[in-house]
Protein backbone atom coordinates (compact mmCIF):
# COMPACT_ATOMS: atom_id res chain seq x y z
CA UNK A 1 0.00 0.00 0.00
CA UNK A 2 1.25 3.43 -0.90
CA UNK A 3 1.80 6.06 1.69
CA UNK A 4 -0.69 8.88 1.98
CA UNK A 5 0.44 12.04 0.31
CA UNK A 6 0.66 14.81 2.80
CA UNK A 7 0.06 17.98 0.86
CA UNK A 8 1.26 20.15 3.71
CA UNK A 9 4.75 18.72 3.66
CA UNK A 10 7.40 20.97 2.17
CA UNK A 11 8.77 18.51 -0.32
CA UNK A 12 10.56 19.98 -3.33
CA UNK A 13 7.78 18.69 -5.58
CA UNK A 14 5.43 21.24 -4.03
CA UNK A 15 7.13 24.01 -5.94
CA UNK A 16 6.39 22.38 -9.25
CA UNK A 17 3.20 22.78 -11.19
CA UNK A 18 0.53 20.29 -10.18
CA UNK A 19 -0.79 20.17 -13.73
CA UNK A 20 1.54 20.76 -16.63
CA UNK A 21 0.07 20.49 -20.07
CA UNK A 22 1.75 21.18 -23.46
CA UNK A 23 -0.05 20.97 -26.80
CA UNK A 24 -2.41 18.36 -25.43
CA UNK A 25 -4.61 17.11 -28.25
CA UNK A 26 -7.42 14.61 -28.70
CA UNK A 27 -8.79 13.55 -32.05
CA UNK A 28 -11.81 11.39 -32.69
CA UNK A 29 -11.35 10.40 -36.35
CA UNK A 30 -11.04 13.74 -38.13
CA UNK A 31 -12.67 15.63 -35.29
CA UNK A 32 -10.29 17.71 -33.15
CA UNK A 33 -12.06 17.60 -29.82
CA UNK A 34 -9.12 19.18 -27.97
CA UNK A 35 -6.70 21.20 -30.06
CA UNK A 36 -3.19 21.68 -28.62
CA UNK A 37 -4.03 23.14 -25.24
CA UNK A 38 -1.20 24.29 -22.97
CA UNK A 39 -1.28 25.55 -19.40
CA UNK A 40 0.14 24.87 -15.97
CA UNK A 41 -1.58 24.99 -12.61
CA UNK A 42 0.21 25.85 -9.37
CA UNK A 43 -0.22 24.23 -5.94
CA UNK A 44 -3.12 25.75 -4.03
CA UNK A 45 -4.49 27.49 -7.11
CA UNK A 46 -8.21 27.59 -7.88
CA UNK A 47 -8.27 27.04 -11.62
CA UNK A 48 -11.57 27.59 -13.45
CA UNK A 49 -12.11 25.58 -16.63
CA UNK A 50 -14.91 27.09 -18.70
CA UNK A 51 -16.35 26.64 -22.15
CA UNK A 52 -19.63 26.32 -24.00
CA UNK A 53 -21.26 22.90 -24.40
CA UNK A 54 -19.21 20.94 -26.90
CA UNK A 55 -16.08 23.09 -26.52
CA UNK A 56 -14.01 20.10 -25.39
CA UNK A 57 -13.91 20.58 -21.60
CA UNK A 58 -15.00 17.09 -20.70
CA UNK A 59 -12.61 15.47 -23.16
CA UNK A 60 -9.70 17.52 -21.77
CA UNK A 61 -10.67 16.72 -18.22
CA UNK A 62 -10.90 12.99 -18.97
CA UNK A 63 -7.33 13.03 -20.28
CA UNK A 64 -6.08 14.86 -17.20
CA UNK A 65 -7.86 12.41 -14.90
CA UNK A 66 -6.23 9.42 -16.61
CA UNK A 67 -9.45 8.19 -18.18
CA UNK A 68 -8.58 8.74 -21.82
CA UNK A 69 -5.31 8.71 -23.82
CA UNK A 70 -4.31 11.92 -25.61
CA UNK A 71 -3.70 11.75 -29.39
CA UNK A 72 -0.62 13.92 -29.02
CA UNK A 73 1.04 16.44 -26.73
CA UNK A 74 2.29 16.10 -23.18
CA UNK A 75 0.78 16.40 -19.74
CA UNK A 76 1.62 15.51 -16.18
CA UNK A 77 -0.84 15.55 -13.31
CA UNK A 78 0.47 15.44 -9.72
CA UNK A 79 3.82 14.57 -11.27
CA UNK A 80 2.53 11.58 -13.25
CA UNK A 81 2.45 11.17 -17.00
CA UNK A 82 -0.97 10.99 -18.68
CA UNK A 83 0.21 8.30 -21.11
CA UNK A 84 2.20 5.97 -18.91
CA UNK A 85 0.93 6.51 -15.38
CA UNK A 86 -2.85 6.70 -15.61
CA UNK A 87 -3.43 4.47 -12.59
CA UNK A 88 -1.10 6.57 -10.46
CA UNK A 89 -2.94 9.71 -11.53
CA UNK A 90 -6.28 8.22 -10.51
CA UNK A 91 -4.88 7.30 -7.14
CA UNK A 92 -3.45 10.75 -6.46
CA UNK A 93 -6.28 12.99 -7.53
CA UNK A 94 -9.67 13.70 -6.01
CA UNK A 95 -12.70 13.83 -8.28
CA UNK A 96 -16.22 14.98 -7.77
CA UNK A 97 -19.01 15.51 -10.29
CA UNK A 98 -22.55 16.67 -9.80
CA UNK A 99 -23.85 13.21 -10.53
CA UNK A 100 -21.86 10.12 -9.71
CA UNK A 101 -20.14 10.99 -6.49
CA UNK A 102 -21.97 9.18 -3.71
CA UNK A 103 -23.84 5.93 -3.19
CA UNK A 104 -27.41 6.85 -2.34
CA UNK A 105 -28.12 3.60 -0.53
CA UNK A 106 -25.16 3.87 1.81
CA UNK A 107 -25.00 6.18 4.82
CA UNK A 108 -22.62 9.17 4.88
CA UNK A 109 -20.29 7.22 7.16
CA UNK A 110 -20.34 4.15 4.89
CA UNK A 111 -19.65 6.32 1.86
CA UNK A 112 -16.61 7.84 3.56
CA UNK A 113 -15.34 4.41 4.60
CA UNK A 114 -15.98 2.95 1.16
CA UNK A 115 -14.17 5.66 -0.78
CA UNK A 116 -11.41 5.83 1.82
CA UNK A 117 -10.89 2.10 1.31
CA UNK A 118 -10.90 2.41 -2.51
CA UNK A 119 -8.14 5.00 -2.30
CA UNK A 120 -6.11 2.83 0.04
CA UNK A 121 -6.38 4.90 3.19
CA UNK A 122 -5.44 2.62 6.13
CA UNK A 123 -8.45 1.32 8.10
CA UNK A 124 -7.19 2.89 11.32
CA UNK A 125 -6.99 6.33 9.67
CA UNK A 126 -10.41 5.92 8.09
CA UNK A 127 -11.88 5.10 11.47
CA UNK A 128 -10.36 8.12 13.16
CA UNK A 129 -10.97 10.63 10.46
CA UNK A 130 -14.45 9.61 9.27
CA UNK A 131 -16.03 10.40 12.64
CA UNK A 132 -14.20 13.68 12.75
CA UNK A 133 -15.31 14.51 9.22
CA UNK A 134 -18.97 13.75 9.95
CA UNK A 135 -18.73 16.08 12.94
CA UNK A 136 -17.09 18.92 11.05
CA UNK A 137 -19.78 18.68 8.34
CA UNK A 138 -22.51 18.84 10.98
CA UNK A 139 -23.88 15.48 9.84
CA UNK A 140 -23.88 13.62 13.19
CA UNK A 141 -27.63 13.09 13.14
CA UNK A 142 -27.58 11.88 9.55
CA UNK A 143 -24.41 9.78 9.81
CA UNK A 144 -26.33 6.52 10.01
CA UNK A 145 -29.20 7.40 7.66
CA UNK A 146 -29.08 6.77 3.93
CA UNK A 147 -27.55 9.45 1.75
CA UNK A 148 -30.67 9.38 -0.48
CA UNK A 149 -32.57 11.28 2.22
CA UNK A 150 -30.08 14.15 2.46
CA UNK A 151 -30.77 17.55 0.91
CA UNK A 152 -28.80 18.08 -2.30
CA UNK A 153 -26.57 20.76 -0.79
CA UNK A 154 -25.45 18.45 2.02
CA UNK A 155 -24.76 15.66 -0.45
CA UNK A 156 -22.50 17.95 -2.42
CA UNK A 157 -20.58 19.08 0.66
CA UNK A 158 -20.17 15.45 1.69
CA UNK A 159 -19.04 14.47 -1.81
CA UNK A 160 -16.43 17.22 -1.78
CA UNK A 161 -15.14 16.18 1.65
CA UNK A 162 -14.90 12.57 0.41
CA UNK A 163 -13.01 13.67 -2.71
CA UNK A 164 -10.43 15.20 -0.34
CA UNK A 165 -10.40 12.35 2.17
CA UNK A 166 -7.28 10.63 0.80
CA UNK A 167 -5.51 14.01 0.81
CA UNK A 168 -4.89 14.40 -2.90
CA UNK A 169 -2.75 17.31 -4.09
CA UNK A 170 -5.40 18.16 -6.65
CA UNK A 171 -9.14 17.78 -6.86
CA UNK A 172 -11.21 17.92 -10.06
CA UNK A 173 -14.70 19.36 -9.57
CA UNK A 174 -17.09 18.96 -12.50
CA UNK A 175 -19.96 21.42 -12.06
CA UNK A 176 -20.02 20.79 -8.32
CA UNK A 177 -22.75 23.29 -7.44
CA UNK A 178 -25.36 22.72 -10.16
CA UNK A 179 -28.90 23.33 -8.93
CA UNK A 180 -27.90 24.17 -5.35
CA UNK A 181 -29.52 27.09 -3.54
CA UNK A 182 -27.56 30.36 -3.39
CA UNK A 183 -26.61 30.10 0.27
CA UNK A 184 -25.41 26.49 0.09
CA UNK A 185 -23.56 27.27 -3.14
CA UNK A 186 -21.53 29.90 -1.27
CA UNK A 187 -20.92 27.58 1.66
CA UNK A 188 -19.55 25.12 -0.86
CA UNK A 189 -17.13 27.77 -2.13
CA UNK A 190 -16.05 28.42 1.46
CA UNK A 191 -14.99 24.77 1.53
CA UNK A 192 -13.12 25.20 -1.75
CA UNK A 193 -11.24 28.25 -0.44
CA UNK A 194 -10.41 26.43 2.78
CA UNK A 195 -8.96 23.47 0.86
CA UNK A 196 -6.99 25.77 -1.46
CA UNK A 197 -5.57 27.62 1.53
CA UNK A 198 -4.20 24.30 2.78
CA UNK A 199 -2.43 23.86 -0.53
CA UNK A 200 -4.86 21.64 -2.45
CA UNK A 201 -5.11 22.57 -6.13
CA UNK A 202 -8.68 23.01 -7.33
CA UNK A 203 -9.61 22.37 -10.95
CA UNK A 204 -13.25 23.35 -11.39
CA UNK A 205 -15.85 23.63 -14.16
CA UNK A 206 -19.05 25.61 -13.69
CA UNK A 207 -21.96 27.17 -15.55
CA UNK A 208 -22.32 29.91 -12.93
CA UNK A 209 -20.28 32.86 -14.11
CA UNK A 210 -20.14 34.50 -10.69
CA UNK A 211 -18.24 31.40 -9.62
CA UNK A 212 -15.77 31.96 -12.44
CA UNK A 213 -14.84 35.17 -10.64
CA UNK A 214 -14.03 33.19 -7.45
CA UNK A 215 -11.20 31.40 -9.27
CA UNK A 216 -7.59 32.58 -9.19
CA UNK A 217 -7.30 32.00 -12.91
CA UNK A 218 -9.77 31.04 -15.58
CA UNK A 219 -9.47 29.38 -18.98
CA UNK A 220 -12.20 29.65 -21.58
CA UNK A 221 -12.27 26.95 -24.25
CA UNK A 222 -13.82 27.58 -27.66
CA UNK A 223 -13.88 24.92 -30.38
CA UNK A 224 -11.28 22.76 -28.66
CA UNK A 225 -8.78 25.59 -28.15
CA UNK A 226 -8.01 27.73 -25.14
CA UNK A 227 -9.08 31.20 -26.21
CA UNK A 228 -8.43 32.97 -22.92
CA UNK A 229 -6.37 32.23 -19.83
CA UNK A 230 -5.87 34.79 -17.09
CA UNK A 231 -7.16 36.10 -13.78
CA UNK A 232 -10.84 37.10 -13.87
CA UNK A 233 -9.89 40.74 -13.26
CA UNK A 234 -7.46 40.81 -16.21
CA UNK A 235 -9.97 39.09 -18.48
CA UNK A 236 -12.66 41.62 -17.63
CA UNK A 237 -10.20 44.41 -18.31
CA UNK A 238 -8.91 42.84 -21.50
CA UNK A 239 -12.40 42.40 -22.95
CA UNK A 240 -13.74 45.62 -21.40
CA UNK A 241 -16.57 43.76 -19.64
CA UNK A 242 -18.14 44.37 -16.23
CA UNK A 243 -18.47 40.71 -15.35
CA UNK A 244 -17.35 37.23 -16.34
CA UNK A 245 -20.71 36.46 -17.88
CA UNK A 246 -20.05 39.07 -20.58
CA UNK A 247 -16.47 37.87 -21.11
CA UNK A 248 -17.69 34.33 -21.58
CA UNK A 249 -20.46 35.39 -23.92
CA UNK A 250 -18.10 37.47 -26.07
CA UNK A 251 -15.80 34.49 -26.55
CA UNK A 252 -18.26 31.62 -26.71
CA UNK A 253 -20.63 33.15 -29.23
CA UNK A 254 -17.82 33.06 -31.80
CA UNK A 255 -17.83 29.27 -31.56
CA UNK A 256 -18.37 27.70 -34.93
CA UNK A 257 -18.83 24.21 -33.68
CA UNK A 258 -21.87 24.76 -31.53
CA UNK A 259 -23.10 21.25 -31.33
CA UNK A 260 -21.57 18.01 -32.45
Amino acid sequence: MELLINHKSASPADNNAVIECRDLTKKFGNFLAVDRISFSVKPGEIFGFLGANGAGKTTAMRMLCGLSYPSSGHATVAGFDVYRQQEKIKRHIGYMSQKFSLYDDLTPLENIQFFGGIYGVPARVIKERSRELVRSLGLEKEATKLVSGLPLGWKQKLAFAIALFHQPRIVFLDEPTGGVDPVTRRQFWDMIYEAAEKGVTIFVTTHYMDEAAYCNRVTIMVDGKIEALDTPASLMQQFACDNMDEVFYRLARTARRKDP
Binding site: A52, G179, M209, D245, F248, A252
Partner: peptide, 10 residues
Protein backbone atom coordinates in the same frame (compact mmCIF):
# COMPACT_ATOMS: atom_id res chain seq x y z
CA UNK B 1 -31.98 26.02 -19.49
CA UNK B 2 -30.48 23.86 -16.74
CA UNK B 3 -26.97 22.69 -17.56
CA UNK B 4 -26.99 24.66 -20.80
CA UNK B 5 -24.18 27.14 -21.44
CA UNK B 6 -24.58 30.90 -21.37
CA UNK B 7 -24.82 31.31 -25.14
CA UNK B 8 -27.57 28.70 -25.63
CA UNK B 9 -29.39 30.04 -22.58
CA UNK B 10 -29.58 33.53 -24.08
Amino acid sequence: TTGVDVVSRR
